[in-house]
Design a binder for these strands. Structure first.
Lengths: 330, 330
DNA sequence: TTAAATTGCAAAACCGGTTTTGCAATTTAA
DNA sequence: TTAAATTGCAAAACCGGTTTTGCAATTTAA
């Protein structure tokens, strides 16, 4: 049932119906009697306007696009939950897509969402998206980047301080008496990862300790790199602690360690918390990003950009917490 | 830049432009020369059609709605990932929403998605959605229900066999020599939960064992019910095993147990796997639903419904696997 | 050479809305 | 009593597409 059919049935013009339905009877100088007749009929047949047509007419799609690496993981999943719940309160629906780190896919998704006229984009970018993101930023299109920056482009951004948080975690390991601390990270130029690595190297350097770094191939959904991991651990038997740039690398490694029966031989710390860490024996120290707070800031920022007329770029750095769990070495 | 502006600039009609862009130059009998001129210009300015207008005109929004309980959890998160990746290959975008089990919110979301003209709905329904889901099913609207059925309504459905899987898990505990097995579940009429409970009761009954059931209040994102949990365990000190109707209840309980130092005193099994279970000490036996297979079937089914002209209702029951991890009691 | 068929496109109708404009009919003010 | 203002709505223009129809101009067939 369309507004045209309603108009025809009631023998009024569709403009009248539209005005009444949208509570603009007064401003359209529609008589109370006619307004009531229309409202009654609309109610009776349970008419709901076609949102696509409304969007086309008003230029407001009430839709936001969310692009993350993997909505199924323990970082982006909860973030996606909070973002969507929050945006819903503002009347927005959310399109989501997982890139799995693939630049080409990520750019395609970006394009499709823009064609579908999302009003804004929230994205945790893959590497190599500079040009495409720059393009939409240049149009002053509402955009919030989170978790990792786009290198070489200043945008609205929400994230934690990866560098200093990483330092905190590694310093904790040092304070616990570990001397041979390896960092296990992914082979990627994602800025949040390089920042975490920098933090690690800085702390070791400050403490006159040797650094051991393993960069595993970046494919968050695959089991690649397990061989490299084992040979790395085998090559450096002197290691006494492992620091992971992300929680899933830690989990993956724990599985490998368990399979070879070395579970408890290392001091362990990881970036990003995981339900496992609290219950694993021994408990695992980690950096915990406040997921809900991050999501709230993202939503606050995108909503601002939707309403701003002037161009504005904001950064919001949300501190992370060092969750100390492991008992000391000595 | 719209198709109208292109037409105006090239001094042709917009119908001509539309036909050419959509590869229908031949069928519209547009000369090759003109077609090339149009395509060249379209290419030059990087024109992309407004998908909203297209949807309005064609009646195809290329959008699917996904409604789950909590996209941030370890069951729905991966399912959401696979569904979206899969649907993307068919050219569909996905709206998602988490209901957190709230019937009212779930119905509102359903309505909004329909107003936005999604072509189909994939839903893991909250309780009490019978009427609203019935309404859209009666319109022969493409709909796939998963994980839990809508009681009293036959719909397309994808899920596992909760009853028999539950029996397998409980039987395993019995076979391991446990005699006082409690089931910890949620206080909800969700059919997948009642089926799991039935399986538990049946096995205990068949083995002449007493059943102990604790129903915790249903709020998947809260820490309510921990007190009840403790007093339940305190009330029945004779319990030697715990069976959980869902993985997050198990995790929650393990945290409580850990805090009171009783971690390893029970035999444990849970419905749905969790990364923790493989690495926890001792390992935890569970029923593992094949998430990717479930998502694939869901997508296959919704795509079929989108293309079917005839009304068809299918059920797809995907077997779950009993992952045996815990060592035996004796 | 002329009627019929084909070519090549424009124009119109449609999808379903919103918003501005315009115009009788009525009411108010002078 | 008459001009001006207001009331109450319809009509038109617009958002940006798709698809069908229609009609000159050209080409083909008889």
């Amino acid at each position: 049932m369309s507004i045209n059919e309603i108009a025809k049935y009631l023998k009024v013009s569709k403009s009248t119906v539209s005005l009444v339905i949208n509570g603009k009877a007064e401003q359209g100088r529609i008589s109370k009697a006619l307004a009531k007749r229309i409202l009654d009929y609309v109610e009776e047949i349970g008419y709901k306007p076609n949102a696509l047509a409304q969007s086309l007419a008003t230029g407001k799609s009430k839709t936001i696009g969310l692009i993350v690496e993997n909505i199924g993981d323990s970082f982006f999943g909860p973030i996606a939950l909070y973002i969507e719940e929050n945006l819903r309160r503002y009347g927005y629906q959310v399109f989501y897509s997982s890139t799995m780190g693939d630049t080409k896919i990520s750019n395609e998704i970006l394009e499709t969402m823009i064609e579908k006229k999302v009003e804004g984009i929230i994205i945790s970018p893959a590497v190599g998206q500079l040009k495409n993101i720059q393009k939409i930023r240049n149009k002053n299109f509402p955009l919030v980047v989170f978790d990792r920056r786009v290198i070489g482009l200043s945008t609205n951004y929400v994230g934690t301080d990866n560098y200093s948080s990483s330092k905190k975690a590694v310093q904790h390991l040092v304070d616990q008496g570990f001397k041979k601390i390896a960092m296990i990270t992914i082979d990627s130029d994602q800025p949040q990862m390089t920042d975490r690595l920098r933090g690690y190297e800085e702390v070791l350097n400050d403490n006159f300790l040797v650094s051991f770094t393993l960069k595993l191939p970046y494919r968050s959904n695959q089991d690649k790199g397990l061989g490299e991991l084992l040979s790395f651990l085998h090559k450096y038997p002197e290691l006494d602690a492992l620091y992971f740039s992300t929680n899933y690398l830690c989990v993956k490694t724990l599985k490998v360690l368990q399979s070879i029966g070395k579970s408890t031989n290392y001091g362990i710390a990881a970036f990003d918390d995981h339900e496992l860490f609290e219950l694993y024996t021994p408990n695992i120290t980690c950096i915990r990003q406040p997921l809900e707070a991050i999501a709230n800031e993202i939503v606050k920022m995108i909503i601002s950009r939707l309403n701003d007329s002037i161009e504005l770029i904001e950064e919001c750095i949300i501190p992370s917490e060092l969750i100390i769990r492991a008992s000391s070495k000595k």
